[in-house]
């Protein structure tokens, strides 16, 4: 992880600013090293951010929703951890095709669950 990203993550986690924390973390996770070090937290935050931008009533939960993931396509470890998060999300939501707002709530719930683990 770059020194800059490390400092920024410390700032965010220390402040625990609450509002838009998911988006703050999602922006930090663009850094590949940061993402690798906190896959679950990053993926849930980035998924939330991606869902915020998408339109339409329903979405299909899949890794492609988070565009930045393409760079980890070859990294089996990362993708396995991403799959686990997706599995957890699907279990929470009862399927793969879900309402966008439900998916956002679920992504946020998981984000805070993972955040607790990190802090």
């Amino acid at each position: 992880m770059s020194a800059e990203a490390r400092a920024a993550s410390r700032r965010v986690e220390a402040a625990f600013c609450g509002e838009d924390l998911e988006l703050h973390v999602a922006s930090l996770c663009v850094d590949a090293a940061y993402f690798r070090s906190r896959v679950e937290l990053c993926f849930s935050a980035m998924l939330y951010a991606a869902l915020l931008k998408t339109r339409g009533g329903s979405v299909r939960l899949r890794p492609a929703l988070v565009g930045e993931l393409s760079r980890f396509r070859e990294d089996g470890r990362v993708m396995r951890r991403v799959s686990n998060v997706l599995r957890e999300l699907r279990a929470l939501l009862g399927g793969e095709y879900v309402l966008r707002e439900d998916a956002m709530r679920a992504a946020r719930r998981l984000f805070y669950k993972y955040l607790e683990r990190v802090l």
Binding site: A91, L92, L93, G94, G95, V98, D102, R105, A106, R109
Partner: peptide
């Protein structure tokens, strides 16, 4: 919305 239930 209020109780944070999910479909399942």
């Amino acid at each position: 919305k209020i109780f944070e239930f999910f479909p399942p």
